[in-house]
């Protein structure tokens, strides 16, 4: 199949009701329906999921690890976003 390999799909599985879909790996399939079926066979042989999402891998746009410092720095410097930043008297109990 020179140049005609089935496209790659990223697979996300919801393991049970109430939890997020979580990335588990990838599979090849000709289209989205087949991707769901293949993901079922490859990633849920032991009842690991109740719902499957598939996304064509080429559609995923990811951040660059080389830019991580600049990208995530604004959060690191804002420690006042955490409750432990604030001083309250001992007597106040749980707050």
């Amino acid at each position: 199949m020179a140049g005609k390999e089935w496209p790659l799909w990223e697979v996300f599985i919801r393991s049970k009701q109430g939890l997020n879909h979580k990335h588990v790996g990838s599979i090849h399939a000709a289209d989205a329906e087949m991707a769901v079926e293949n993901a079922r066979d490859v990633y849920t042989r032991r009842s690991e999921g109740i719902s499957i999402w598939v996304v064509e891998s080429s559609q995923v746009f990811a951040s660059d690890p080389a830019d991580s410092d600049a990208l995530f720095e604004p959060a690191n410097s804002k420690i006042y976003r955490h409750p432990t930043f604030y001083e309250v008297p001992d007597g106040v109990g749980h707050m």
Binding site: M1, K4, W6, A30, D31, M34
Partner: peptide, 16 residues
């Protein structure tokens, strides 16, 4: 199995 994979791809493209 090649023809099966090719046929599946052709079908997917046609549907699209």
């Amino acid at each position: 199995g090649m023809w099966v994979r090719e046929a599946a791809m052709a079908y997917a493209e046609k549907k699209k």
